[in-house]
Design a protein around this nucleic acid. Sequence first.
DNA 1: ATAGTCTACGCACGACCGTGCTATTTTGTC
DNA 2: GACAAAATAGCACGGTCGTGCGTAGACTAT
Lengths: 199, 199
Amino acid sequence: MPRRVRSDGEWSRKTIVDAAARIATVEGLEGLSIARVAEATGMSKSGVFGLFGSKQALQMAAIDEARRVFVDEVIRPALDAPAGVQRLAALCDGFLDYVRERVFPGGCFFASVAAEMGPRPGDLRDRIREEQKLWVGLLAENARAAKKADDLQKGVEPGQLALELSALLTGADIAFLLHEDPQIIEGVRNAIHTRLRRT
Amino acid sequence: MPRRVRSDGEWSRKTIVDAAARIATVEGLEGLSIARVAEATGMSKSGVFGLFGSKQALQMAAIDEARRVFVDEVIRPALDAPAGVQRLAALCDGFLDYVRERVFPGGCFFASVAAEMGPRPGDLRDRIREEQKLWVGLLAENARAAKKADDLQKGVEPGQLALELSALLTGADIAFLLHEDPQIIEGVRNAIHTRLRRT
DNA sequence: ATAGTCTACGCACGACCGTGCTATTTTGTC
DNA sequence: GACAAAATAGCACGGTCGTGCGTAGACTAT
């Protein structure tokens, strides 16, 4: 029984998942309702449900999509910069731009759902946790490269720096969304650049 | 079943609001349901509803209670330290302890709801916004005092420092809840202390 | 003692939710 | 062109939600 996937279905899936990721940053991953997604895509509730089989599957698919967007918008562009401090700066700048430009209406998808799912055990939280680990790992990796190249202030531990940057970025995202003030983004950008200067 | 009547309205209100604040840090301010609060307090749904009149009034009351707790647990103890760097450090340490000790099961109430309500306009967001302004203002005020006493590294702008600290603390809260790793708290504590040293 | 307010409950309504079940149409494969 | 499977819609179910309504006990003021 070849379980083949049809192209029209594939297009619908993409449309749905795109809307779902956007909605989730505003309504939350839990508040993401199938009816809401159906309305946003012009499909029927059953249509949306049938393509994913369960709400959790849709939520997981939304995370997949958000990850794709994050890689496209933040990570991939930063790979143009050489590993180390410069890439570190490019990653942080890319993140702040991606929040500021409202790639998702509710700011960073992962900051949003991390805050929501943090205290709620389950598969969704585990998934977000892994994604976050990859992100901090990427920062730490470049912090290590920067240290090896002696591009950091002395006494700065790479893992510590990665944690610090990640916390600053998450905090910037949340404060920016609450106050709708771009100066918050620019203030944190400034703080990060200062932190990444050697002197 | 004995119908407990007129036990004391004020006591009931307090019990309800206390439960509501705790629940909101886990389920979210929107996910906070009257039924859930009723179950947690052993009251009937109508009992809870009647005491507050609307869901939003209950949510506002939960914010009031959270503020009370925050002042008690974080701000008041820090007032023992002299204004300036020391109080700044005491405020940050107090915050990190309050998160780590799980005064609320879902970490910092205001970080939680700021992340949730950030992209959702309305009275609740406005309220959270004001509370957050007071907190950052308190940090800024002490940063100014610290600068005046020449207790900061030169070139550090008080407002900028306050924003930075606030972002770090929020980020620490969220990361800690997601990973359940106290080292995250201690790492950020360390970063903050380093930032507050003059040399 | 009586009236009136506050507390607390049971009940029911309409809205929305996730999810099955059953058609009908569309598509890709032989 | 036949046929199976996928895609999508319609509908109904049980559940939860916020909220009104009616009621009854308990405290307060007269």
